[in-house]
Design a protein around this nucleic acid. Sequence first.
DNA 1: AAGACCTTCAACCGCCACGCA
DNA 2: GTGCGTGGCGGTTGAAGGTCT
Length: 353
Amino acid sequence: MVRSPFCYSSSLKKGPWTPEEDEKLVDYINRNGHESWTNLPKLAGLNRCGKSCRLRWINYLRPDIKRGKFSQEEERLIVNLHSVLGNKWSRIATHLPGRTDNEIKNFWNTHIRKKLLQMGIDPNTHRPRTDFNHLSNLSFLLFGNLTSPWNNVFKLQHSDVAHLINIRLLHNLLQITNTRSFPSITVSGGTQNLNPLEQLLNKTATTSLYIEEPFPRTEDLPLQAPTEVTDAANIWAALEGEMLLDLDMENNKLMNSCCDTQIGNSLLDQLISASSSSSPESSMVNQMESNGNPLDDNEGSGSGSGSGSPTFSVFDSWEKLIDDESGSFWNDIQDLTSLSQSARDLFNVEIRI
DNA sequence: AAGACCTTCAACCGCCACGCA
DNA sequence: GTGCGTGGCGGTTGAAGGTCT
């Protein structure tokens, strides 16, 4: 591939811009505009490449640049848009007036990404993480809500997330380490076309789940009758026993307490169903893009949840989280993280596969 | 006080798409 | 159809400042 020579000359200056250079660039563009970035440096008296000038102007010197910290509203919008658009920073930037793609990208990588990881959510897919390296981080989801000041609504979601993440972790763990098969889980009485785990978490009164067969640890052991489990606590306990997750007494207490929480509609379930359904995201982003600046109307119906669709969207879920009236949900996440260190240590030690 | 380590973000690099000759 | 110049984008880097030990 023939590389364009411009911008690769070693004689051109690189690195941070000086105030004098900024002044020259702003002055020239104010007087002449920027029809050709290639010719601009020469005409403006700058020993820079056009590309560098363009970047400096777009990311820093433009008069309509909004400086300063991102608001919670902007943060929420970035997360929502990223869940739909991925790393399309320039497209995301079109929804945040005054913010540049570079600024948003940096903000994502330095702030939001970390927060999602702490929540056990893969920032790339916006789904629960299923890699094992972050088990220690997940443990805070399991134990944190025992003492956290979260309000009731969020506690339920938080608990559900923990349940599903752990069940999925176990499932994946088994599939990876497995020479043995994962016990099949069937649903009795359920009418929805959900997979068993999702049905469990979307629990209706008539739903029962069966762990059909324990792990055959040895061929000598007789087959056991299917065990009926009717709630997340029991299925978790059953899996836990079969997985040789030898939690000590203290951990068990914590686990039981955690699992005593009543199951409600889960954030995670909604995220999953939103992601696997007929792509509400695409219609969402279309709506957002056709509505113009979403920051202008997000308190009304413009955030997408009021479209009349019965399907939960990923945005609804996020907004429920973020709208937590106790304040910033990010702050709550941080509270949990700090509370969970001891539990995290226990969890790390006790997993034996 | 000082060095190590961490975080942030401006700027660069390389690739791709598009328009034009 | 092909090659070149250019603009635009996303990933990455590294300097600077902050925090920790």
